[in-house]
Computed example of a mutant assay.
Amino acid sequence: MELLNDMVLFVEVCKAMSFRKAAENLDMPSSTLSRRISHLEEAIGLRLLHRTTRKVELTEAGLIYFERCKRIVGEAKLAHEQLGEMLSNPSGTLRISLPVDFGTIFLTSLLVEFAEHYPGINFEIDLTPRLVDLVTQNIDVAIRMGNPPNSNLIAHKLMQFRGNLFASPKYLEQHGIPEHPNDLVHHECLSFPNNTRWKLYRAEEKIEVKIGARFMLNNVGMTRKLSLLGQGIIFTPYEVVHDDLNDGLLKPVLPEWQGDVLPVYALTETRLLPAKVRAFIDFLRKRLPSLIHSF
Rank of each mutant, 00 (worst) to 15 (best):
D126P: 06
L33M: 03
Q137S: 08
F66E: 04
A266L: 04
L134N: 13
F10I: 10
I37R: 02
M222T: 13
V132T: 09
K199V: 03
I292D: 05
D101R: 06
G62P: 12
E179F: 08
F166T: 00
T268S: 07
V132R: 03
I105W: 02
T53S: 07
F280I: 04
Y118F: 15
E116Q: 04
A79R: 01
E204R: 12
F106A: 08
V11M: 11
R71G: 01
M145I: 10
L250K: 12
E75A: 14
E188A: 04
V220E: 07
H186D: 13
T223A: 12
P149V: 10
A43K: 14
I105R: 01
L33P: 02
S91L: 01
L254V: 14
H242Y: 15
L249E: 13
V220Y: 09
R20F: 07
M7F: 09
H39Q: 14
V240G: 00
T270L: 00
N194R: 03
M86Q: 14
V277C: 01
D260A: 07
V253G: 15
Q137F: 05
L284H: 11
D243G: 12
G92D: 09
L107G: 11
G259C: 12
K15Y: 04
I234L: 05
L40P: 00
I154W: 07
L98M: 14
H293S: 11
M17F: 12
A203Y: 07
I143A: 08
I105A: 00
L200Y: 11
R47I: 03
C69W: 05
A22V: 12
R285C: 08
A203P: 10
Y65S: 10
I177R: 02
F280E: 04
E113G: 08
F10L: 06
L110F: 09
T136W: 08
P169K: 11
K225V: 10
K170R: 11
K286I: 01
A16L: 10
V264D: 00
E67S: 08
E205S: 09
K286Y: 01
L153C: 06
I121V: 15
L127V: 10
K157F: 03
L33C: 09
N122R: 15
E124F: 15
K21G: 00
R47H: 05
G84Y: 00
T93D: 04
D27S: 14
E67P: 06
Y118L: 07
N194T: 03
E85V: 11
S88G: 12
L272M: 08
A16M: 09
T32Q: 13
N25C: 05
L158A: 07
R95G: 02
I64P: 07
F66P: 02
M7V: 03
F114M: 03
G163W: 07
F215W: 15
G248Q: 04
Y171L: 09
D243K: 13
L250A: 03
H180N: 09
R287T: 06
C189V: 14
